[in-house]
Nucleic acid binder design. Structure first.
Lengths: 166, 166
DNA sequence: TTGATCGTTCAATATATACTAAACAAACGA
DNA sequence: TCGTTTGTTTAGTATATATTGAACGATCAA
């Protein structure tokens, strides 16, 4: 069933655009699962991407049709990953959440961080594992190519950050 | 229980190095789940990374202690993603599998492909969704930053490929 | 102090999907 | 034409984890 969701910033709050916004949230939520997010975290991510104002926990739970418990767990997850931030309003003890301003860079940093474990294991194996020279060379290549790409990537992300700040 | 695994290329096939190799396979398999691979696919990925020779389906299943059905499904998955390749030997109707030579580049291409869906949804929303100018600008920024980083990244991967070929 | 609000934790459930065993199909040699 | 080898498909099971309702604790206003 469709719920009232005054949260999303829309031009004219009619039911047609509302349905389209719902669909966007759902599609993005499913797609974000490839980044290792639970579906509800993906919905929150998408909802806040669409929202100009910061939203309260209850507002989020209501808007995406999830329990407050889920909203709590998943906002914390997103905050830890740096994709949303918690803000406060004076004279109000609720927590509010909004998208971070450098959303794309944070997204990429998360992706980089998730690769790290894979490449650390291979790196460690180059040192500690007793394998043939051919295999060792294969692993070293995997390592060096990753490092060169990672450097290029982090440099590009830094340029994004600089461009934003000026 | 430990199984015989004559597959992995090791210097001296003693039990100590064997246990270390097992541990590598397991650790890498779990880590590869962040790239959206089933655990068994991750084990096969790791096993073939350690193997000089191409391995048969039965050899793979035996080495990682999985059923032949799983080996079949997951080798196909890895082959479709371009991380391993199927080879044949004359006078032998079995299929054999080995790591691709440009393993890292293929890994990165897979990662890029998985992001595509997320960014395509946002791109589509910029065109089709009725949102406020502020939100539209936020989305456009997400899009353009992604595109610039993707360009840098694909260029770096092409350099990896060129470096390999000469 | 009391009642109300807000967020978190926890035990139980729901859901998705990875995995297996068994049946099946295809290709080959005798 | 068999029986054998090889790989795939499928139905059922197992496993991991996402999600929820309810209980809980903390904070604030009256």
């Amino acid at each position: 069933m469709p719920v009232l969701r005054p949260a999303i910033a829309r031009r004219k709050p009619d039911s047609r655009t509302s349905a389209a916004l719902d669909e966007f949230v759902e599609r993005l939520a499913v797609a974000m699962e490839t980044d290792g997010l639970p579906r509800i975290a993906g919905r929150i991510f998408a909802l806040l991407l669409l929202s100009e104002q910061a939203l309260s926990l209850d507002g989020i739970a209501l808007s995406i049709g999830a329990s407050k418990a889920s909203a709590s767990v998943n906002t914390r997850l997103l905050e830890q990953r740096g994709l949303i931030e918690r803000v406060s309003h004076q004279g109000d003890r609720r927590d509010y959440y909004r998208s971070v301003s450098d959303l794309f860079v944070r997204t990429m940093e998360q992706r980089l961080a998730r690769w790290q474990r894979v490449h650390a294991i291979v790196d460690e194996a180059i040192e500690g594992l007793d394998v043939s020279p051919v295999i060792r060379a294969r692993m070293k290549n995997f390592k060096t190519e990753y490092e060169s790409v990672r450097e290029v990537l982090t440099a590009a992300l830094q340029r994004c950050q600089l461009r934003r700040r000026r």
